[in-house]
Amino acid sequence: MKQPKPWVKSALELGPVILFFAVFMLFRDDTVSVMGRDYGAFVFATLIFVPVLVASTLVLWRLTGKLAPMQIATLVLVLVFGGLSVWLNDPRFFKMKPTIIYLLFAAILAVALVSRRNWLGAVLSEALPMTDAGWRKLTFRMMAMFLALAVANELVWRLMSESSWVWFKTFGLPLLLFVFLMANAGLYREHALEKPQEEPQDGE
């Protein structure tokens, strides 16, 4: 199946998050009435975000023919916790969603380490070919990172303002993930697999 252009894929993945941020910032000082029920800005933004994420994920699936396990898990948890926040008109459930996601990923990586399974490599080996030792180190580091992000999310949403959490979720968490990936550049180089040299053609 033909792969979508990179900008289309990025728009489908990041668009719902940016929309959530924009809707929250636009209505953060208001109460919005939907079908006779009043919502604060956060829950109203969640009400918009959930169906948009479902639609963008379905479009991405249609274009690529597949979804990553992380995308499926994220979609399910968004439906569950986002739906609870809207249904109960309580933003706490949606704020807890990143914590659950990060703990789930940390648990999966912990099982991979204990069982000596290279699940991370099975997903990323084409983009990042490394030795088994390299994948074990990266698996442990990513497990620790997800645990740290889960703790950070809990601290921010419980101790700081709603606006602070929205900024943290929209920009802080992606930035921390980017810094983590860049910080492991040395590991990628140290454990990179050498590309097999091509056989010389006859007559060369």
Results as ranks from 00 to 15, higher is better:
200 P>F: 11
19 L>S: 10
14 L>D: 08
170 T>S: 11
129 P>L: 03
195 K>V: 14
82 G>V: 00
167 W>Y: 13
194 E>V: 06
100 I>Y: 08
100 I>Q: 00
86 V>G: 06
112 A>E: 03
62 R>N: 11
105 F>Y: 11
116 R>M: 05
21 F>E: 02
147 L>F: 10
201 Q>L: 15
2 K>P: 15
44 F>M: 00
53 L>W: 04
180 F>W: 06
142 M>C: 14
11 A>C: 13
117 R>Q: 12
184 N>M: 06
82 G>Y: 02
5 K>I: 12
202 D>C: 05
107 A>E: 09
172 G>V: 04
45 A>L: 06
94 F>V: 11
105 F>I: 09
189 R>F: 08
198 E>G: 12
52 V>N: 04
18 I>S: 08
202 D>K: 12
78 V>L: 00
156 V>Y: 06
201 Q>V: 12
65 G>W: 04
49 F>N: 01
66 K>D: 07
40 G>M: 00
192 A>E: 07
60 L>H: 13
183 A>S: 14
203 G>C: 02
93 F>T: 01
80 V>M: 03
87 W>R: 11
4 P>N: 00
10 S>M: 15
43 V>G: 00
200 P>W: 09
145 M>G: 00
128 L>S: 13
71 Q>N: 09
136 R>W: 10
17 V>H: 10
57 T>S: 08
31 T>W: 09
